[in-house]
């Protein structure tokens, strides 16, 4: 198994590029759904000590909405789309055609809409991944939770925690043109998947 610590700068770059294409696809999908321009940053590919991961999204007790999908296939992993609570409310108001500021609590219909967004973004992301690597990856049905960032991130971190003290995260930040929505998209390959992905892009 390839150890995350052995990645060369070029290999990290390759992962960043895959992340970039995937995130670009997702951002386009989201932009078309809500009919607003979405900006994204260059994905951050980093090896983060597990205990520091919650800080990426505002600290372990920040309230966030997370849509979680398990990725199946040759390079299994987890996808987590995280939004601050405010962004999630703004997004459902946009999706449901309500005035912004209407939503104060997510009802089952809102949750379902957000899950669908998570589904579409993941599909777009993984599709780009496939074009790049020819590794087919299928997302599970999405699951949603609104809670503390630390608690939600636990789910992906625990899985990594079995294997080591660091998490390889490919993270992209989305921002809508009117600043109403920002989100973080995490792709966290299972420890064994990293080598498969690197090999598929052909970077030694």
């Amino acid at each position: 198994m390839l150890d995350e610590f052995d990645l060369s700068p070029i290999q990290l770059d390759a992962l960043r590029e895959i992340g970039n294409v995937g995130a670009g696809n997702s951002a386009t999908a989201l932009s078309q759904i809500i009919n607003k321009r979405i900006d994204m940053n260059v994905p951050n590919v980093a090896l983060v000590p597990i205990e520091d991961v919650p800080d990426l999204v505002g600290g372990p007790d920040a309230i966030v909405v997370g849509v979680f999908l398990r990725v199946y296939g040759k390079a299994p992993g987890n996808i987590l789309f995280l939004m601050p609570q405010k962004s999630a409310f703004y997004l459902v108001d946009t999706l449901m055609g309500r005035e912004h500021g209407t939503t104060k609590k997510l009802d089952p219909m809102d949750m379902s809409a957000l899950k669908e967004i998570g589904n579409i973004l993941s599909g777009a992301y993984l599709n780009a991944f496939f074009n790049f690597t020819h590794i087919s990856m299928l997302p599970s049905i999405p699951s949603l939770a609104m809670d503390m960032a630390g608690a939600i991130l636990n789910v992906v971190l625990v899985q990594l925690g079995v294997m080591g003290d660091h998490a390889m995260v490919i993270e992209t930040k989305f921002l809508a043109e009117d600043d109403g929505i920002n989100g973080h998209f995490f792709l966290v390959p299972d420890p064994g998947s990293l080598g498969t992905l690197i090999k598929a892009v052909g970077v030694e």
Partner: peptide
């Protein structure tokens, strides 16, 4: 020891 408080934020499955 007293009077300190120990705190841990955002436990999920932990």
């Amino acid at each position: 020891r007293s009077p300190s408080t120990l705190i841990s934020y955002g436990l999920g499955s932990c």
